[in-house]
Design a protein around this nucleic acid. Structure first.
Length: 810
RNA sequence: GCCGCUGUGGUGGAAUGGUAGACACGGGGGACUUAAAAUCCCCUGCCCGAUUCUAGGGCGUGCUGGUUCGAAUCCAGCCAGCGGCACCA
């Protein structure tokens, strides 16, 4: 037997065995204790796997292996989020059709992923760009349309006039085109939306019961942005129009001394008085020129202009001026506000700037800072029928007054917007809609799904959606629906594809149903979902919404797709984010080549807690490589030579020290608890410590060695199979039961007790582990160095902390 | 500006009220070797240090206070870094 572990041969050997025995392919219909371990599926880029891929997939696989050994029927699928911009850009550059380059990239990526040695069930692979998948993306669209959750609305798109193309938000960051640097303009276009807002409340409430990082839940709560308040109508002097505002503080209505409309507000033209028209127009033009960034810059001084018109405050009949200002946004609430400068900081700032009246209507014991608005709760003053009421009470009273008078009503507002699913791109799932001669939309009947993405298109941008140029698509539509009918040319946002893929893994290519209801019932929700924190407000909210909609369509029984969520941290290099442009990326290949997959993935896990990531070090990986060699050497040379399991009882007995037994059980406990909470770094440390102890022993029992191998199995799957075989274990180590620890065995006979005097450690002594309080304190006082401090002093207090220390206070 | 997280040796990190720095990396010294690699052994937070090789002592977890017999850990205030939101009425 070699004493050197050779990863390249051995890893290939076990990967082949696993595949031959179909060890990781799961019969979804026949399991007792399902555990769905899911990772966010990758985009198939043409580059080789980078460290980020390894970090995203290998540690979650170790956790899944751990769950398998604990008796769960683990299903760990993988697939590809294959539609998207990079393939399309590649096509524009080279002329290679996206499906060609994508298929090729996927094949390369599968080969590389296989070297990782994860427990993927390759038979269940999905790829969102294949017709058999996007058929369901389109089906989802049709369902949304049928249930009136999909609708059309005009919305601006980012457009680059130089490239003649619509840009995705990520291509138009900081207001210029990613490719040519030309300023991006906003162009209105009729597009499809999905009514995620209809589920705002359920999306919000569902968060409470999810085992997700608090941070992510908070981000989703803010994203949904629920605020409760009231809608109030203001009459306009000498006009029939009314201005409706939304406010969270109806209790301050008596303090409303002016109103502000967003510059884009449709009423501005109608109400502006003649003598103000010029300035107002000029102001609106100026605002229109500003970029999004300039407009939302908080540091800037507030600007605005009066319209010359007046509104009537419904509660006291006072005439208050109407202004326009860009601190009021058209996109939130009604695009108009009632301004209460005494109790809102922005209104206060604006009122001071333009010398508008400030009327206090809330009093509080809290000290109000001079020159600042008081925005907290208190008691109403100067408010007629609200005087003396607490804020919460005053809100209710005002709302019922408004409702009685027909001037307003209670209203809840949300920040979340409906989901714009249209993309003016080629490489996505075509929207299954056609338009009749009058331009009225009709759904493509389900029998025509998959509604194939045509291949006869020019990838070069020419100002419209690429599908516009497809003769094949046009002919298809006319053939099915009639002369003059035209197709929808937009494709769907790739987030639509990824909003339900976890169901399609379970469907095993089912062409009739999105998913089998029995399987869905058994396997959903996903038990453990792992992916980057950057998806907190996009993918993770869309997937929840789609699941809720599917529940209402009667397709699924669960509401929430992901029961537990864990985000991986980032791997940095010398403290900096790895990026191609910085040239500080680390290529896994060279390290995997040299040390093997086990060492590479274990090193990634050793760098720090999984959710915190870590800093890469070229030399640090050597520590793990040494550990792996040492494991192999110690376990194969210290165990009895005639270890064959078949000759049970004939073993030359190796006596095991009680200290080794105690350490073994302590190690089982630590590895179990640390693996459970994704602290692989300390799990590995525990194994290292135990191995260092074993190395010092004359011999190691086969049982102890086998237990060690089981503990190592999730972390180093290949090495542990090899050792399991070498130690005479039956079957695969991954099929063994996870070791249990017994607290009884964790105690040693003698313990070390530290002695503190006034909080400083002054000595230590050995004692039996069941030493009594009085004996411990008495022994502590015997110590020479302790005596020195005790001499001539009076004792104030003596404390014995069980098994740890004695504390003496003078 | 608001919210959240983080701050510990030369480095990654451990310890979540009980001996700070586990486990590694790096560094120093030694063994083996013709040599190198690999491997093994010892030392490694900073400072002082009796009777010279090791007792003992002081300081030390971003800063300043507090609670406690005892604080990296709990509390208050501040500083720095990272992430998110950002005129949301």
């Amino acid at each position: 037997m070699p004493t050197e572990y050779d990863p390249s041969a051995i890893e290939a050997k076990w990967q082949k065995q696993w595949e031959k025995k179909k060890l990781f392919s799961v019969d979804l219909k026949k399991v007792k204790d399902p555990y769905y371990a899911l990772v966010m599926f990758p985009y198939p880029s043409g580059d080789r796997l980078h460290v980020g891929h390894w970090y995203a997939y290998a540690p979650p696989d170790s956790h899944a292996r751990f769950m398998r050994m604990r008796g769960k029927d683990v299903f760990e699928p993988i697939g590809f989020d294959a539609f998207g911009l990079p393939a399309e850009n590649f096509a524009i550059k080279t002329g290679t059709p996206p499906e060609e380059s994508t298929e090729e990239n996927v094949q390369t990526m599968i080969r590389q992923l296989k070297r990782m040695g994860c427990m993927y069930d390759w038979e269940k692979l999905v790829m969102t760009s294949r017709p058999e998948y996007y058929r369901w993306t389109q089906w989802l669209f049709l369902k949304m349309y049928e249930k009136e959750l999909a609708y059309r609305k005009e919305a601006p798109v980012n457009y680059c006039s130089s490239c003649q193309t619509v840009l995705a938000n990520e291509q138009a960051q900081d207001g210029t085109c990613e490719r040519c640097g030309t300023e991006v303009i906003q162009k209105p276009l009729t597009q499809w939306f999905w009514k995620i807002t209809q589920y705002a409340d359920e999306l919000l409430e569902g968060l409470d019961d999810l085992n997700w990082p608090e941070k992510t839940k908070t981000m989703q709560r803010n994203w949904i942005g629920k605020s409760e308040g009231a809608e109030v109508e203001f009459d306009v002097v000498d006009h029939d129009e009314k201005i409706t505002v939304f406010t969270t503080r109806p209790d301050t209505l008596f303090g409303a001394t002016y109103m502000v409309l967003a510059p884009e507000h449709p009423l501005v033209d109608m109400i502006t008085s003649k003598d103000h028209k010029g300035v107002i127009e000029a102001y609106r033009k100026e605002v229109a020129k500003k970029t999004e960034l300039e407009r939302t810059d908080l540091a800037k001084v507030k600007t605005g202009e009066p319209t010359g018109a007046y509104a009537i405050n419904p509660v006291n009949g006072e005439q208050i001026p109407i202004w326009i200002a860009d601190y009021v946004l058209m996109g939130y609430g009604t695009g108009a506000i009632m301004a209460v400068p005494a109790h809102d900081e922005r209104d206060f700032e604006f009122a001071q700037m333009f010398d508008l009246p400030i009327v206090e209507v809330i009093q509080s014991d809290d000290i109000t800072e001079e020159g600042k608005a008081f925005c907290g709760n208190g008691v109403n003053i100067n408010s007629d029928f609200l005087n003396g009421l607490q804020t919460s009470e005053a809100k209710k009273r005002m709302i019922s007054w408004l409702e009685d008078e027909g001037k307003g009503r209670a209203l809840t507002n949300y920040r979340i917007r409906d989901w714009l699913v249209s993309r003016q791109r080629y490489w996505g799932a075509p929207i299954p809609i056609v338009y009749d001669l009058e331009g009225k939309p009709h759904p493509v009947p389900e029998e025509h799904l998959p509604w194939l993405l045509p291949t006869d298109v020019e990838f070069k941008p020419k100002g419209t959606s690429p599908l516009t140029g497809s003769k094949e698509l046009k002919d298809r539509v006319e053939k099915i629906f009639g002369k003059g009918w035209i197709p929808e040319y937009d494709t769907m946002d790739t987030f639509v594809c990824s909003s339900f893929y976890y169901l399609r893994y379970l469907a095993e290519g089912d062409e009739k149903h999105l998913i089998d209801p029995t399987i869905e019932k058994n396997w959903m929700p996903v038990d453990m979902y792992i992916g980057g924190p950057e998806h907190a407000c996009m993918h993770l909210i869309y997937a929840r919404f789609v699941m809720m909609a599917l529940r209402d369509f009667g397709c699924v029984s669960h509401v929430e797709p992901f029961r537990q969520l864990v985000h991986q941290g980032m791997i940095t290099n010398q403290g900096a984010k790895m990026s191609k442009s910085k040239g500080n990326t680390v290529s896994p290949d060279t390290f995997v080549e040299r040390y093997g997959s086990d060492v590479f993935r274990m090193y990634l896990m050793f760098m720090g807690p999984y959710s915190e990531g870590g800093d890469w070090s070229d030399t640090g990986i050597k520590g793990i490589a040494r550990f792996v060699q040492k494991v192999y050497r110690v376990l194969t040379t210290k165990t009895p030579a005639d270890r064959s399991a078949k000759r049970k009882g004939s073993n030359k007995k190796v006596d095991q020290d009680s200290a080794v037994t105690a350490a073994l059980h302590g190690t089982i406990k630590r590895v179990t608890e640390d693996t459970e909470r994704f602290h692989f770094n300390t799990a590995i440390s525990a194994l290292m410590e135990f191995l260092n102890l074993l190395e010092k022993q004359e011999g190691v029992t086969v049982e102890t060695a086998q237990t060690f191998v089981k503990l190592l199995a999730p972390l180093a799957p290949h090495l542990s199979e090899e050792l399991w075989e070498a130690l005479g274990g039956k079957g695969f180590v991954i099929d063994q039961q996870w070791p249990a620890y017994d607290p009884k065995h964790m105690q040693t006979d003698t313990i070390t007790i530290a002695v503190q005097i006034n909080g400083k450690v002054r000595g230590e002594f050995q004692a039996s582990s069941d030493i009594s309080d009085t004996d411990a304190i008495a022994q502590a006082k015997e110590l020479e160095n302790v005596q020195k401090y005790l001499a001539g002093k009076k004792l104030k207090k003596e404390i014995y902390v069980q098994g740890k220390l004695v504390s003496i206070v003078l």
